[in-house]
């Protein structure tokens, strides 16, 4: 009877695991089927053709995505790390506990709301859509991820390391920057990569900020496109060829996210500081 129960349980676990993964395989299948045929060098390195014409590529979206990710990182990585340090340092104080809750709240704000906020803050003030507005919107999503990753990896550093550092006659701030931070760097990095994967797929915050641009643009004060925005616009369009390109773009985006996540998983093992 016991063996029978064991088997039933085992079967259920395996069956439900596969059930969970089925949609994922399905998504991969569809994207591969529809997107792979669009992928060629020209697709990566040319700009979109005017609406209705066949051909063209997604260079504007690729460049835009990297521009947005770059500036979002520039804003959120330093602030996020410092905020994480603050959360770690004050974790037992009231202010730290409140901030810890607030960062969770920030993380749970719907991304469309963040887009509207960035619109009010920046787009309205500047008078036009811009890459920097998009980056700010993305960094609001990115920042709590980094802050939490920093806090959590800091907490995993054994107290003996802090003690040892202090016993060598170093001040507490130096201990944080020269001991705890370097020991935690792998955890923070993997948080950064996971966060990048997360924000590279965000569309809603970019709708009213980065807006989209069918030309190549590296000026952060002008609108840019992104992979996710391009998918959105192309899917909404009536043109058959743009639908095909949207699938191709989805394929590229999924691969990008997959790469970021795998680096963070592999890196987490490889760069891990062993005690």
């Amino acid at each position: 009877m016991k063996i029978f129960k064991d088997r039933i349980f085992k079967f259920l676990v395996i069956f439900l695991s596969f059930l969970t993964l089925t949609p994922l395989f399905f998504i991969f299948y569809i994207i591969l089927k529809n997107g792979l045929s669009s992928i060629n060098l020209k697709f990566f390195f040319s700009l979109p053709k005017p609406p209705g014409e066949i051909g063209g590529g997604i260079l504007n979206a690729i460049a835009g995505t990297f521009l947005l990710l770059f500036f979002a990182s520039l804003i959120s990585i330093p602030i996020g790390i410092f905020f994480g340090m603050f959360l770690y340092e004050f974790k037992e104080k009231k202010i730290g506990k409140i901030c810890n809750i607030l960062i969770d709240v920030l993380q749970s704000i719907p991304s469309i709301v963040i887009g509207i906020i960035a619109y009010l803050w920046i787009v309205k003030k500047m008078g036009h859509f811009s890459a920097i507005a998009g980056s700010v919107a993305l960094s609001l999503i990115f920042l709590p991820i980094i802050a939490k990753a920093t806090k959590e990896t800091f907490e995993m550093v054994p107290f003996s390391m802090i003690e040892t550092s202090l016993s060598l006659g170093s001040s507490y701030p130096r201990t944080i920057f020269k001991v705890i931070l370097p020991i935690s760097i792998n955890g923070i990095l993997s948080g950064v990569l996971v966060g990048l994967g997360r924000i590279s797929g965000e569309t809603a915050p970019l709708l009213f900020t980065a807006f989209g641009n069918s030309f190549l643009n590296f000026n952060i004060c002008k609108p840019v496109s992104s992979l996710s925005l391009l998918i959105f616009t192309y899917t909404m369009s009536p043109y058959e060829d743009w639908h095909r390109q949207a699938w191709g773009c989805a394929f590229v985006l999924i691969i990008l996210i997959l790469i970021l996540n795998s680096i963070s998983k592999v890196g987490l093992k490889k760069w891990k500081v062993k005690f």
Partner: peptide, 26 residues
């Protein structure tokens, strides 16, 4: 100076840097 119960060289530093840890951190 202080030496603790459990050996605890800094895991992010090499042997060379560990000897110099007092200077590096400070």
């Amino acid at each position: 100076g202080m030496v603790f119960q459990k050996p605890n060289p800094f895991p992010h530093l090499s042997i060379y840097e560990n000897v110099l840890a007092g200077y590096i951190i400070n």
